[in-house]
């Protein structure tokens, strides 16, 4: 029998990593309010996000479901600071970040955000190990800062995704599933507070997809990261803690509320 969960003095129960088990009592790691985004298409304007609000909590796996063109990727880009909303606000660790400059946003991505893309997006010239090491190098200040530790953590995370025998293989020498596992390792190597995955199993066959999803969910929980997983597969969403539905750029339902 496992040990009972610890409590704070005022009766709030904490989880294994010290966060309140009742997420409504906890401040969201990432909080978005009324995000709007439109793109110019020809002479007109295409409104992709229409006031989307989302809260992501550490240790919670969240599915973002919606049909193609519903605004899933655009919302993910906003939350990942890859793009700026036209209006609305975004907080990461209580810090307002929607208006950060390119350099500051990049530094924040390096330090606190992890990405897993549908197309894997590995650098083809680099080995699996070098791909995983890259975010740490980008986040590092100075040439020789903590090199040994960075290499150790890259090796460790690759072992955790089961690729200890593929460290020096180039992406072209890996299967699709293995490439996505490298991408997951790369997203987790910096121990991000938020992990954003855009249809991570969309490019994989069912069996490999299931294995990859298992891995992503397990590691996301182990790392206590706030995970947002964009998908249009209900089976994938069913395995997450919470599902956010998006249609025409509007969040219309969150399960459980």
């Amino acid at each position: 029998m496992s040990d009972p969960l610890p409590e704070t003095g005022d009766g709030i129960q904490l989880n294994a990593v010290g966060n309140p088990t009742d997420l409504r009592l906890e401040m969201p790691t990432l909080m978005a309010r009324e995000l709007c985004k439109s793109y110019r298409v020809g002479s007109g304007k295409l409104q992709v996000l229409r006031g989307a609000s989302v809260d992501l909590y550490g240790g919670q796996i969240c599915a973002l479901m919606g049909s193609s063109g519903s605004g899933k990727s655009t919302l993910l880009n906003m939350l990942g600071l890859l793009d700026k909303p036209d209006t609305g606000k975004l907080w990461l660790h209580k810090k307002e970040v929607q208006n950060l400059g390119q350099a500051a946003a990049a530094r924040l991505r390096a330090a606190g955000l992890g990405f897993v893309f549908q197309q894997f997006q590995l650098l083809p010239e680099l080995s699996a190990f070098e791909n995983v090491l890259m975010p740490r190098r980008l986040a590092a200040r100075g040439w020789w800062s903590r090199r040994k530790e960075e290499r150790r953590s890259a090796r460790e995370v690759l072992e955790r995704v089961g690729l200890q025998d593929r460290l020096h293989h180039k992406p072209s020498q890996l299967s699709g599933g293995e490439q996505q596992r490298v991408a997951i390792a790369r997203a987790l190597v910096s121990k991000p507070a938020v992990l954003l995955a855009d249809e991570p199993t969309g490019n994989l066959d069912r069996k490999t997809g299931t294995e990859t999803l298992d891995l992503l969910l397990r590691l996301g929980r182990e790392e206590s990261a706030a995970v947002l997983l964009a998908t249009h597969d209900p089976d994938v969403a069913a395995r997450c803690d919470r599902t956010i539905f998006i249609r025409d750029g509007v969040i219309f339902n969150q399960v459980p509320e």
């Binding site: 390119q102 990049a106 530094r107 390096a110 590995l122 650098l123 010239e125 980008l138």
Partner: peptide, 16 residues
């Protein structure tokens, strides 16, 4: 261009 995009997403600043 794609590699540059990946590097930027991973945290490379424009200066970098």
């Amino acid at each position: 261009r794609r590699d540059i995009g990946v590097l930027r997403a991973l945290g490379a600043t424009p200066k970098r």
